[in-house]
Simulated assay, not measured.
Amino acid sequence: MENLLLIFDAVGIFVFAISGALAAVRSGMDLFGIMALSLMPAIGGGTLRDLVLDQPVFWVEGTTPIYIAFAAAGLTFFFSRHLAGKRLTWLTWADAIGLALFCVVGAEKALDVTGSMLIATMMGVVTGAAGGIIRDIICNEIPLVMKKGEIYATATFLGAGSFCLLIHFDVPGPMALWLAMGAAFLARAGGILKGWTLPEALH
């Protein structure tokens, strides 16, 4: 399970960094801006999670996440011209994949540290959603999580919560990771492709 968590974390950092870099390109930022903004979704949520849990910040303990994010930013910088007209689509899907991966990685770490399903679910949501919020605010855009009808934070809650429940019912760790990640991604994908929304209060 530890190796799978490392893979999930690395892939999540990579695709979230791509989403940040694409957002920077769409905003007309230069190479420095692209590199800097790639870090926001890649490490922002995990940093907040570690600070709240009073744990060593993951990218300070080992700098590999920074190099992964910069590699993703560099690739985006060089190939972004080929994505002209499709950058928002690529950003949206990179964000969806990163969200699904990070919410279960965050939940697993918090569950291991605290043993609380509630706290683990909350930290999964933070890990999956906070970095994207920072990215969008820097780009002067309404964060996806705040947009009316978006299945975004709900997807992270579903992924993190289902992971905790699966572990509680003794589902093997790797299977729990895959199932929870899949649930989060499908929920977000449904929102993107099918317009799934949560019900609103009656006026």
Rank of each mutant, 00 (worst) to 15 (best):
R135H: 04
V126R: 12
P143L: 08
A153M: 10
G132H: 11
V113H: 13
A120H: 06
L111W: 01
P174A: 09
G132M: 14
F169V: 11
M146V: 10
M117I: 04
L118T: 02
F163H: 00
C139A: 12
K147Q: 14
G128D: 09
S116C: 05
M146E: 02
G159Y: 04
F169R: 06
K109Y: 07
V113W: 06
G173Q: 14
I119F: 06
I151A: 05
E141R: 07
A129K: 09
G124I: 12
P174R: 07
G161P: 01
L111T: 02
V125S: 14
I133H: 07
G149Q: 04
A155C: 11
H168T: 04
G173H: 12
K109S: 01
A153W: 09
F163V: 01
A110L: 03
D170I: 07
I142M: 11
F163L: 02
L158W: 01
D112Q: 15
T156P: 03
L144M: 15
V113N: 02
G115I: 02
G173R: 15
Y152D: 09
R135P: 08
V126A: 15
M146W: 15
F169M: 15
G173L: 11
M122F: 15
G132C: 14
V113R: 07
S116F: 09
N140P: 00
I119M: 12
T121H: 10
E108H: 08
D136W: 09
G161R: 00
